[in-house]
Design a protein around this nucleic acid. Structure first.
Lengths: 116, 116
DNA sequence: TTCATAGTTCTAGAATACTAGAAATATAAG
DNA sequence: CTTATATTTCTAGTATTCTAGAACTATGAA
């Protein structure tokens, strides 16, 4: 992972609205959630919401897919893992702690349940 | 961990100079590194360096201890673990992935070698 | 079509953060 | 005490980000 990419992701998460958005999506799992539903749940006006969702997407932390009139957003776990790995790279190169390989298991899809 | 604390830490890391600083200290381990040495290694002017080290310390990501004329800075792994845990809290509450308890082992001190 | 719904883009004002020179402070050495 | 070194605080100019109203676009229903 390149430094700029890591900074983009950290900056994306370093903002109250976006952090809440992301965590909400993390909880939701692979199914994702419509923009409107997120905005309603968090009490964020539509333009502000769109601004932040776009930021998260540009940073690669969430993905979006249109479903009818709605747009479903979902957290991208892979991106998160990459970021965590980058942050702890060469951790204690002096010999302290182990590299702790795959920090987090990726979400196992629940029996390939298609989301229309 | 409180939301504001997480945001402070993410914001602290979401900046090129500070991210480089932190990663350098992560590599250094518990020994830490004098401010001047870091600044020289990264080519950052002293006032700028101080500004960023202070930001990292306020965020709880690094600790500082004076040693003679120098001030030694060191990464705080505990803080990092807390942050990672917060980011993935309730990961896939729908039932996907496991909580992945202690994401990273804390750095084992190398035989209690005191750093004056 | 025409209407309603779901989201996005445009916009500009308010707030916050970054940089680095100059000056100040603490420690140590002579 | 005087000087040198290590780092911090003060400062101001520049740049970036956040917010939300108004206007716009896309999809689906009647």
């Amino acid at each position: 992972m390149k430094e700029q990419e890591a900074i983009d992701r950290l900056a994306a998460l370093a903002q109250p609205t976006r952090l809440a958005l992301f965590r909400r999506l993390v909880r939701r799992g692979a199914e994702g959630m419509a923009a409107g539903a997120i905005g309603e749940a968090l009490g964020v006006p539509a333009p502000t919401l769109s601004f932040h969702l776009t930021a998260l997407e540009r940073a690669g932390l969430v993905t979006s897919t249109r479903s009818g009139r709605s747009i479903l957003y979902a957290a991208d776990y892979r991106a998160m893992e990459e970021l965590l790995g980058y942050l702890l790279e060469n951790c204690c190169a002096d010999g302290g702690c182990a590299p702790a390989a795959p920090l987090v298991a990726p979400p196992r899809a629940k029996k390939a349940k298609s989301v229309p």
